[in-house]
Nucleic acid binder design. Sequence first.
DNA 1: AGTCTCCGTTCGTAAATAGGAACGGCGTTC
DNA 2: GAACGCCGTTCCTATTTACGAACGGAGACT
Lengths: 255, 255
Amino acid sequence: MVSDNGSVRSVERVTAVLELLSARRRPMRLAEIAQELEMPKSTVHGLLHTLDARDFVRRDEEQRYRLSIRLFSLAATALGFEDLRDVARPAMRELSESTRGTASLAVLDGHEVVYLEKVEDRSSLVQVVTQVGTRVPAHINALGKALVGALPREERERWVDAHTFTQVTGSTVADPAAFRAQLATQDRLGYAVNDQELHPAVTAWAAPVRGHHGQVVAALSLAHLGSPPSAEQMHELGLRVRAAAGRVSEALRSD
Amino acid sequence: MVSDNGSVRSVERVTAVLELLSARRRPMRLAEIAQELEMPKSTVHGLLHTLDARDFVRRDEEQRYRLSIRLFSLAATALGFEDLRDVARPAMRELSESTRGTASLAVLDGHEVVYLEKVEDRSSLVQVVTQVGTRVPAHINALGKALVGALPREERERWVDAHTFTQVTGSTVADPAAFRAQLATQDRLGYAVNDQELHPAVTAWAAPVRGHHGQVVAALSLAHLGSPPSAEQMHELGLRVRAAAGRVSEALRSD
DNA sequence: AGTCTCCGTTCGTAAATAGGAACGGCGTTC
DNA sequence: GAACGCCGTTCCTATTTACGAACGGAGACT
């Protein structure tokens, strides 16, 4: 540990290799990886050889490396989200079908929302493109607002102070004060709203899902595509999302 | 590279740590990991510190480590399976609802089947417990049979020769000859069957899904719980699964 | 309150790795 | 078909890591 931060260099580098392979979303060759990461070929060679031997990457016949399926299994089973997804799916399905919208399940990871599951209405022609594993900034997203709003008071304040409010559309909440006002409103209503803040054609509602001990484990949302609903409809749909999230919470409790 | 296999030791070890955290499916402390893997605490300390710094693991307030959500995102988005899942989901949903069974999507990874997606019928009380990311031996599984059957002739022969036919229930196919006979049958029918081989109460059908250039990208299955259907029903359901897989293949082609 | 035990962390040096340079193979260009 | 360019791989030693031992702190038990 002569270096400044106490990290193991070869481990830092191997994470960089995995991240690169993930980000590029295509197989890469040794020389390309070495060049991209500005590492000597011989070094990358050793890392890739080891990752291949441990089946974290696969080498195809053209000597291109890609992340292994086993890495997918490893990450998917480890988090225990699979159980949550299974429990939430029925309620998401009901919500999606009865409203002809897209239901999503997500967790907060720092200042981003990570999608865990998605249920789309079959009949709708246009579909929300968000994929499982995708990340979006929390402040432009109903799920994010619901999750931040559910944080303990002090933690929530720190979160808002630290957050960078990037503007995406004209309707995007752009400053901490406006965001705090939204959190207060949604706290009263029991559901969060995102009205055209991510995209002009998207309106969404979200509410937190709570586990055995009342702790927030995820948030559930409904996204509606098209012209914005009337005020009455807005509230009606918000309540439905809140109810669906409540049903999932109950189902979790009776596990 | 003084060692025998040319691998980087710290990388080998870091993969072992990640695998352990995945396998245990719960947060672990430094000392426990060190003991389990028979590594010195100081070594594990360095590895975990680095993994934490790179956000591959998270340390909670009780100093327990778990795999990060980011690792999930990394693996999920990298493989490009998300697109496939999105395309397959409508057909899986239709299949599941019209038959009141569980539809699954999987790929072959060596001698195991890895589940990518699952759609359950809401109305059924008993549900198949397989989760996304799970692995099962290919020969006791309709998805596995469909995928192996779709391999190029030569590769398929090598696969069967190399496979270990573990017996799970009395009905499990236990030898290469019987397995080859099944592959021949399903090749004629266009769908694979698993009749009580994994579990006495489970019957399943599966068919391959093909991508742009006719290559097999996954298999789609339907699992039925309860008493085995009649011979007629068996065939009828098999054809439905084949049709559903065909629809997914077509949808992939028109991307 | 004192002792015991177990934990995470730090330290120095024996052991392993990183990386420049050089090698041999393969496909392409002239 | 010779020369070139690019690639993966190997070699050797300066650099970095591994790890036994020792430290300090936090609980648990007496």
